[in-house]
Design a protein around this nucleic acid. Structure first.
Length: 771
DNA sequence: CGTACTAGTCTTTTT
DNA sequence: GACTAGTACG
């Protein structure tokens, strides 16, 4: 009995092809992970390949983990030596060993997007650039693009000397690299780029890895950028046993440098390549596949393929149009509840997908209101939350204080009375004496013009010094707890703002237990090992631990996942496809969005619900957008459409209650919004109590102004509840109002929440609903 | 030096 | 609408 039994013919052919370049075009749901894992097992078990000689590269930790697990299962012990890692982790591993050979320090830290922005702000200060003329984000994007093309600062500057704007960017690039270098830091793009340059400049290092990795596999090959392509090409050059798996129709990462040509031209780049297509889909119903096939057929220049399944028919694709975004969200929540109640699906079988993260809020609100358990993936990565980053910066500083940005981040967190001017002075001193910021801090008494601040800095450095002792004696969990206790970190958060203090403290607790777990599982690991892992982890990696909750995520995050019931929302021109791609006038941008639509549709196993809204709040403005062009690309006979817009004039519906005529509704709404705010403002001036009269008055205002009295506007009006009333909060649930106090800006409300306890919050912020 | 408020920007998508 | 950098004031 062979390992390859149980695969279909195509899959078996792919997994069993061992020598020479191989391209596997794997349609959505065609079992590509299965093929990859079986191939690894086959190499080891039946071809006697040493696991040490095999490498599999993925894009996400999740994919890597999954593959590792499945290989373990088939092969059993002995496959630990196989490298199954992300591109970034692979490069880090190589660079940690060899980067000194191209003049860097092996002990580098890794900068995430936030750190990168901070570094760029530094650049702007030094070069006296004006962010209004040239945005930091633009420069960072250009730098990233350059790095993906393996263009360093020198080449960038010489190639762009003629163009003023680009020359400015070149200067920024150059200084940005200096700053990273001084902080002993690499950004994500550097990890790849410098590995390539290591290989190019040190042939013996390259030869070493070429000999080691005789069999190389790359997952999601359509997402590789040029730097990653070079990396693979170099590694595979000797043995040419390169197997790449991908789907050109699912290439959705152009914005971060992915080059779809890598997969389209694979046969040209690797002569003698074999190409195998996997077109049988094991996931979706035929109806869903037909919809996906019809949409993607509108793209040009793709590798022709057509998914098929033996799951005949199935439900039609449901398409509903709502009056506005809130109706859409509410109805999706209700539909999910109905599915659950009828025993058709569990919460965990449902996923809500959208184009942009900003769309998640409305769904979150409605799900909370309906009491549906949910989990949002990706809005804010755990490790980039402020309190977490602060604590990680402490750990970084304790580990080695070479990263100026990390030190500067925490030197006054919690408040130590060390202000911006003091930091500035120390920085100048550090620059002038060619030392790190932290080293300058340790000799604060010699920095001119510090005065009393010097003593405060001294206290800080001696604190760090003590923590290093604790780390050495008691380990990382202990230091982390010590930092939190000694600095009064949690009290500071409690003091700062009442609203999300709970969340933040919860995050901190989670960090502590993560560190403890890590320490337990890796007794030999150092603090820097942990920090490295933290730098390369994303939110998505924890997705499958969430079992019985509705998952909310962007379509990008959903790639590679599948759900019995998918709700694909916000299908409007301007949202999906987005304005950017419509306005660019470049058909390629629309094609990229269409591929994204294809990815979205093919996530659904059993039922696909698509929805759009006639009007929607975008960036604080109501927009009226037409139904997405992609909807029209789905044949009518596959769809069941419904106009689900709420025609009643109740709370939440736009326009109708004002008896407005058609015409320029957007402008009209803006005007009404202004008037409503002004009206409320007047009332606020006179409302000195929270008694019944003002309650009624506000209630009246609310009906008149409809949905316009939300958010900041409300801060002028008195709340429509008072002590003793029952209220509902989106996060904390139901509770009883204890007190309402008028504060300087807003009403402070004290509520005793059932089971959650007492909270003090601002009325405008809390958005409490009287029940 | 810290705060409290204002003005301006921003939105695609993420390893 | 949300967030952030910048500014005026205590």
């Amino acid at each position: 009995m062979s390992i390859l039994d149980g695969l279909n013919d195509r899959q078996r052919e792919a997994a069993g092809h061992i020598d020479g370049p191989l391209l596997i075009i794997a349609g959505a749901g065609s079992g590509k992970t299965r093929v990859l894992t079986h191939r690894v097992a086959y190499l080891i078990k039946e071809c006697n390949v040493d696991p040490y000689n095999i490498m599999a590269i993925t894009f996400t930790n999740k994919a890597a983990g999954e593959m590792r697990e499945r290989v373990d299962k088939i092969v059993g012990s002995g496959c630990e030596a196989v490298w199954v890692m992300t591109f970034h982790a692979t490069c880090v591993r190589i660079l940690r060993r060899h980067i000194h050979e191209i003049g860097y320090d092996n002990n580098f830290t890794i900068y995430d997007t936030d750190d990168t922005k901070a570094a760029m702000r530094e650049v702007y200060k030094k070069l006296q650039f004006d962010p209004k003329q040239l945005r930091e984000a633009t420069v960072l994007r250009e730098i990233s693009n350059a790095k993906n093309e393996l263009i360093g600062p020198d080449r960038f500057m010489s190639e762009n000397a003629g163009d003023y704007r680009m020359a400015q960017i070149g200067k920024a690039y150059d200084l940005y690299q200096d700053i990273l270098r001084n902080n002993n830091a690499l950004d994500f793009d550097d990890l790849i780029r410098l590995t390539v340059s290591l290989f190019e400049r040190c042939p013996e290092v390259l030869a070493n890895y070429q000999d080691r990795f005789r069999y190389i596999m790359v997952d999601e090959y359509q997402d590789t950028n040029n730097a990653q392509f070079e990396l693979i090409k170099l590694l595979a050059a000797k043995h040419r046993n390169l197997c790449v798996v991908g789907d050109d129709d699912q290439s959705i990462y152009k914005f971060r440098g992915a080059n779809i040509k890598n997969i389209l031209n694979f046969e040209n780049n690797f002569s003698g390549a074999k190409v195998i297509k996997l077109e049988q889909n094991y996931r979706s119903t035929q109806n869903i596949l037909n919809a996906a096939n019809s949409v993607i057929a509108h793209n040009y220049g793709r590798k022709p393929k057509k998914l098929w399944t033996d799951r005949d028919g199935g439900d039609p694709v449901f398409f509903r149009v709502y009056g506005n975004g809130r109706e859409e969200a509410r109805d999706v929540a209700e539909q999910i509840i109905r599915l659950k109640r009828r025993g058709i699906a569990d919460f965990g079988d449902c996923a809500i997908l959208y184009r942009t993260n900003a769309q998640s809020r409305e769904f979150e609100e409605q799900l909370v209101r309906e009491g549906v358990p949910y989990f949002i993936i990706g809005s804010v990565n755990f490790y980039s939350r402020r309190e977490i980053k602060d604590l990680l910066s402490y750990l970084k500083t304790i580990e080695n204080a070479q990263d100026d940005l990390a030190v500067a981040r925490i030197i006054n967190v919690p408040k130590r009375g060390i202000g911006q001017t003091t930091i500035q002075k120390v920085m100048e001193f550090a620059d002038g004496n060619n030392m790190s910021f932290y080293d300058a801090c340790t000799m604060a008494d010699q920095v001119p013009g510090l005065g009393k601040a010097a003593a405060k800095i001294e206290k800080f450095t001696s604190f760090i010094y003590n923590m290093r002792e604790v780390l050495a004696q008691e380990g990382m969990t202990a230091v982390l707890k010590e930092i939190i206790d000694e600095t009064g970190f949690i009290d500071e958060i409690k003091k700062a703002d009442e609203d999300d203090a709970e969340d933040r403290i919860g995050n901190i607790e989670e960090l502590i237990s993560t560190v403890r777990q890590y320490e337990d599982n890796h007794p030999e690991a150092t603090l820097s090992d942990f920090l490295e892992e933290a730098a390369l982890v994303s939110d998505l990696d924890s997705a499958d631990e969430e079992t019985s909750r509705v998952l909310l995520m962007t379509i990008h995050s959903a790639k590679g996942l599948e759900f019995p019931h998918v709700f694909l929302c916000g299908m409007e021109d301007g949202i999906f496809p987005g304005f950017m791609s419509i306005n660019s006038g470049n058909e390629e941008d629309i094609e990229e969005e269409r591929r994204l639509a294809y990815v979205a549709i093919t996530r659904a196993k059993d039922v696909l619900n698509i929805s759009a809204a006639k009007s929607r709040m975008v960036r604080g403005e109501t927009q009226y957008l037409p139904v997405s062009r992609f909807i029209k690309e789905i044949p009518e006979e596959l769809m069941e459409s419904e106009n689900a817009s709420d025609t009643g004039a109740g709370f939440g519906s736009h326009g109708s209650s004002f008896g407005s005529s058609y015409g320029n509704k957007v402008a009209e709404n803006k005007l009404l919004k202004k008037n409503a705010a002004a009206f409320l403002g007047v009332k606020a001036g006179t409302a000195s109590d929270t008694g019944r009269a003002s309650q009624q008055r506000t209630a009246q205002v609310n009906t008149t102004a409809g949905t316009f009295t939300r958010g900041a506007d409300l801060s002028f009006g008195a709340p429509d509840y008072g002590p003793g009333d029952r209220v509902r909060h989106v996060k904390f649930g139901d509770g009883t109002v204890k007190a309402v106090d008028k504060g300087p800006r807003d009403y402070q409300v004290t509520v005793e929440f059932d089971g959650v306890g007492q909270k003090i919050m601002y009325a405008a912020f809390a958005k409490l609903i009287k029940i």
